[in-house]
Amino acid sequence: MSQKEEVCQHKLMISRDTLEVIQGKWRLPIIISLIHGNKRFGEIQRDISSISPKMLSQELKALEMNKIIKRTLYDTMPVTTEYALTELGSSMNKLLDELINWGLHFRKEVLGK
C-alpha cells in the first residue's frame, strides 16, 4: 500500500470514528443545546421539542459513554441531574460552527432559503 493510500485509509478510519460519535438526528442538537450552558434534562428537551424523553435519555447516555458530556447528580430532594459538555465535547465548537456555516450555505444554494 502506498503512503497516499495509507493516509487515505487513516483519514477514512478517523472520519468513521467521528461520525459514530455524532451520528443520528439528535446528538448534534443535544451538543448544541449544551454549548449554551449546563442544563437539566427538561431544559434540553424544551430546546429540542420534537425529541421524546426515551430518545433523549438514550442519546445522553451514548454521549456520556463517549465522554462528550458529563452528568452531575446533586443531593437535593428530589435528586437534580445536570448535563454539561466535557472538555472533549467543548472542543467541537469550531467543528459545529463550520457545520452550521456550511448548512446555511447549503440551504441558500440548494433549498433557496
Score class of each variant (00 low, 15 high):
L104W: 05
R46S: 11
E82A: 09
G42V: 02
G42N: 14
E6W: 06
S52A: 08
P53T: 12
K39L: 09
Q23W: 03
G42F: 06
L28E: 01
I22T: 00
W102L: 08
M55P: 00
K39Y: 07
D97M: 10
L96W: 01
N66I: 00
N93C: 06
V7S: 12
K113D: 07
H10K: 11
K61A: 06
G42E: 13
Y83G: 09
F106P: 00
T18F: 15
G42L: 02
G24M: 05
I35S: 09
L19V: 06
T18H: 06
N66W: 07
E64G: 10
T72N: 08
I35W: 07
L56M: 12
H105Y: 10
D97Q: 15
K113I: 15
S2E: 04
N101H: 07
V7I: 15
D97P: 02
L60D: 00
E59C: 08
M92S: 09
S52Q: 13
S49Q: 05
I69L: 07
K70I: 07
G103Q: 02
R107S: 14
R27C: 10
E64P: 00
K11Y: 14
S2Q: 01
L96D: 03
T72D: 09
T18N: 01
I68N: 05
S91H: 12
N38T: 04
Q23S: 10
D17I: 03
L19S: 04
C8G: 09
V79D: 07
K113P: 00
S50N: 15
L99C: 14
R16D: 10
K4E: 14
T80A: 12
G24W: 02
L104A: 13
M55K: 15
W102V: 03
I22E: 00
D75H: 06
R27W: 08
M55W: 00
E5M: 05
I48C: 11
S50K: 15
L73Q: 10
N101E: 10
Y74S: 13
S90Y: 12
A84P: 04
G89A: 13
K94T: 14
K94P: 06
I32T: 12
Y74W: 11
V21I: 15
G37C: 04
T80F: 03
R16H: 05
L88Y: 13
W26Q: 04
S52P: 04
M55N: 03
G89E: 13
I68M: 08
L60E: 02
M55F: 01
L12T: 12
E6H: 13
F41K: 09
W102Y: 06
T76I: 06
G112S: 06
E59K: 04
I48F: 11
L96G: 03
